[in-house]
Amino acid sequence: MTDIEFLKYPIGKFKLPSPPTEDTLKEAIESIHSLPNLLEQAVISLDDSKLDTPYRPGGWTVRQVVHHLADSHMNAYIRFKLALTEENPTIKPYDESAWAALPDSQLSILPSLEIVKCTHFKWSFLMENMSKQDFNRTYFHPENNNSPKLSEVTHMYSWHGTHHLAHIQHLALRNNWLTQ
Results as ranks from 00 to 15, higher is better:
Met1Tyr: 11
Asp3Thr: 11
Ile4Arg: 05
Phe6Arg: 04
Pro10Lys: 12
Gly12Leu: 08
Gly12Asp: 11
Ser18Gln: 13
Pro20Met: 07
Pro20Ile: 12
Thr24Phe: 00
Glu27Met: 09
Ala28Gly: 06
Ala28Gln: 10
Glu30Gly: 07
Ser31Leu: 13
Ser31His: 07
Pro36Leu: 09
Pro36Gly: 09
Pro36Asp: 05
Asn37Asp: 15
Glu40Arg: 14
Glu40Gly: 03
Gln41Pro: 00
Val43Asn: 00
Ser45Glu: 09
Ser45Asp: 12
Asp47Arg: 05
Asp48Gln: 14
Lys50Pro: 06
Asp52His: 07
Tyr55Leu: 00
Pro57Trp: 00
Gly58Ala: 09
Gly58Thr: 03
Trp60Phe: 07
Thr61Gln: 01
Gln64Ala: 07
Val65Pro: 02
Val66Thr: 01
His67Gly: 02
His67Met: 03
His68Asn: 07
Leu69Phe: 10
Met74Gly: 04
Tyr77Cys: 02
Ile78Gly: 05
Arg79Ile: 09
Arg79Tyr: 05
Phe80Leu: 10
Leu82Glu: 08
Leu84Phe: 12
Thr85Trp: 08
Glu86Gln: 15
Asn88Ile: 10
Pro89Thr: 14
Pro93Met: 09
Tyr94Met: 03
Glu96Tyr: 07
Ser97Leu: 09
Ala98Trp: 05
Ala100Ser: 11
Pro103Thr: 08
Ser105Cys: 13
Ser105Ile: 01
Ser105Ala: 12
Gln106Arg: 11
Gln106Tyr: 11
Gln106Asp: 08
Gln106Ile: 00
Ser108Gly: 04
Pro111Ile: 01
Ser112Trp: 07
Val116His: 05
Lys122Trp: 14
Lys122His: 15
Trp123Phe: 14
Ser124Phe: 03
Leu126Pro: 01
Lys132Ile: 09
Phe135Ala: 06
Asn136Glu: 15
Asn136Tyr: 11
Thr138Met: 04
Phe140Asn: 12
Pro142Glu: 10
Glu143Cys: 03
Asn145Thr: 10
Asn145Arg: 14
Asn145His: 15
Asn145Phe: 14
Leu150Glu: 05
Leu150Tyr: 06
Ser151Val: 06
Glu152Tyr: 03
His155Met: 07
Tyr157Lys: 10
Tyr157Cys: 01
Thr162His: 04
His167Tyr: 02
His167Leu: 01
Gln169Ala: 07
Gln169Glu: 15
Gln169Asn: 13
His170Lys: 00
His170Met: 01
Ala172Leu: 02
Ala172Gln: 08
Leu173His: 13
Asn175Ala: 04
Asn176Ile: 01
Asn176Glu: 15
Trp177Met: 05
Leu178Asp: 15
Gln180Ser: 11
